[in-house]
Design a protein around this nucleic acid. Structure first.
Lengths: 344, 344
DNA sequence: ACAGGTGGATCGAAGTAGGCT
DNA sequence: AAGCCTACTTCGATCCACCTG
């Protein structure tokens, strides 16, 4: 029973000695160079196995100028969307042989994003993924902070030529509003997410565009902060204002949940008195009272696609600039929270 | 407008030349060694600033044998608890000057945990945090995989002498059951989380212990998988079985949500016909129909405490073995979903 | 004796050049 | 000529021994 030290104190030379070859050959095997006979290759691999050799990443990246890790700057990991993206990015990265360094920023502001980037730069990553849908981010600023390190923006829409992947939030918004219009609604109130968020802004624009196109204007537009609590509070305000409405569109499913409860407390029936619509399709929304009609977004695909885009840039820097902005389309999921307005 | 290369091609020697000192002095400043006059120190700092010098982490850790990053192996980042922990660990780590490498495992099994550890070892982290509440993890196996690298288990209860931080799930379970007993309930059904999870097991044990102590047994015990869908399905089963019950305890808030909807569909009123109790206190549970009585856990504190424990081990390896297992207590939050059973 | 410079060696791997079988 | 070796350099920072004003 050997003491089995995993502190990685075993070097390439130990492997070489054990296999009876030179360290050069070991290096060739590890990096899959040509000109290694299958038999010696086998010997080396066995030595690596029995010695539990792990190449020293620091030494390696010192000479290769690559760390083999990608950096994610993410906001709101406790929200459904960002968490989904991060998980899927990480999984895809491992499959491609990369590790992931994460920093989550406590507040969605340009300053925090920059801080996040600087932190990750210290860890010397090979590429950045920014899951930070702040409206009006200064792309130039980010580009200069990233320097020669490629980066990808997720969920940012003003991708001024920067490689990026997006879900078309605006068409998602349109989808939602159109659904209500098709049902015959004319008095629609909007509860948006924080307008500093790109997503929130675009969803609102989508809602508005569909309404305008049909010749209507929203009876009320209020801004929340994605939380159920804000959806609850804003709906209370809306009810107190006595503005009549037959449908309520929320910026995300959590806000819709808060709205549902506020309506319930006032004795307003959903959907017979008021239809409610969410956004995201979190797993729970199917079990809201009533089950929520909402717009589904494929965050997993978004994460995976972004990673693919980033790695293209990392591994073949030449074409980095030519990367297209990819766009995913959301999908309407109709459940019991929406119906035609009551005839008056 | 200088081309501003951030590829970190500027070395310690460039800084030295710019500041008119030796590379030795620059190193002394960076590592806060003594014997540097304030004036020269200032000069060096200025040179670092204007050259935008960033020490090369690879070179640094090659000699210091430290990477300055900690590894997190986490399961279920899309769940509220784990996400909270990861975010808080990361934040605390940055404050202490550490970066974070993350790997989330797709499935909660011992094999996956090991894979996660191996992946992180490649990134040569200084310490591990395992957010993986698998029941019966082989601590010895993990210890050997970690080798000389210190590690901390979050949420694992069989911390056989390993440094760990836990929330006392069992007393949380007792809290919940006792609340129902105090209200006068005698026919209580239990909807547990997956029993491979430590948390789920301990909560169930807590519920049972409290009931047993009061002279009762649960009328039914069903096992779900944390999702609202499972809470829904199990509650349907329970109702179909026609076993009478006046209270339902769920393994977490999501399962409670599913249960609420299943009860509602059958015309069972909450809380007047059946009381429902959750676990976790996710932000949304306040807006369930009705607002959910649940057991709050301070995941943020758990994350921060674990990090502190780990860093103690990382920075002063001597006392690593002597680290105590810290335990946090959960708290009951009473809302509208529980009340006394109807007199029959 | 304090503030600093000089000139190394060192960490572990990758890569290069030339040479032997 | 493929397969492998020896010997040396490089990457960037740390740290040491030793010197100097």
């Amino acid at each position: 029973m050997p003491p089995f030290v995993s502190g990685s104190r075993v070097t390439i030379h130990d492997v070489a000695r054990h296999a009876g070859v030179s360290h050069q050959t070991v290096s060739r095997v590890i990096n899959e160079h040509l000109s290694v006979a299958p038999s010696t290759r086998q010997k080396v691999l066995e030595a690596i196995e029995t010695l539990k050799y792990q190449p020293n990443q620091a030494a390696r990246s010192l000479v290769t100028q690559r760390s083999g890790t990608l950096g994610i700057v993410s906001f709101g990991l406790t929200y459904y969307g960002p968490a989904q993206m991060v998980v899927n990015i990480e999984r895809a990265a491992r499959l491609r042989g990369y590790g992931v360094a994460l920093t989550s920023i406590p507040e969605l502001s340009e300053g925090e994003i920059e801080r996040g980037l600087l932190e990750l730069r210290k860890q010397s990553v090979d590429g950045f993924l920014l899951v930070a849908p702040l409206r009006g981010v200064n792309t130039e600023r980010i580009r200069s902070l990233c320097g020669h390190t490629p980066f990808v923006l997720l969920d940012a829409a003003e991708t001024g030529g920067t490689p990026g992947v997006t879900i078309d939030q605006m068409s998602g918004g349109r989808l939602a509003a159109q659904h209500l219009l098709d049902l015959g609604h004319e008095h629609i109130a909007l509860l948006s997410g924080p307008q500093r968020w790109h997503d929130a802004r675009l969803r609102l624009e989508g809602w508005r565009a569909a309404l305008t196109h049909a010749g209507y204007t929203p009876v009320s537009v209020l801004e929340g902060d994605w939380t159920a609590a804000s959806g609850f509070g804003l709906t209370q305000e809306l009810l107190a204002s006595r503005i009549p409405f037959t449908a309520l569109v929320a910026g995300n499913d959590q806000m819709a949940l808060g709205a549902l409860w506020a309506l319930h407390e006032r004795g307003v029936a959903v959907p017979s008195d008021v239809s409610v619509l969410g956004f995201d399709d979190i797993p729970e929304s199917r079990f809201f009272h009533p089950p929520l009609t909402t717009v589904r977004q494929d965050f997993a695909a978004l994460g995976a696609l972004s990673l693919a885009a980033l790695l293209e840039a990392v591994e073949s820097p030449r074409e980095a600039q030519a990367l297209p902005t990819r766009v995913l389309l959301p999908e309407l999921v109709v459940r019991a929270s929406t119906t035609s307005p009551r005839r008056t």
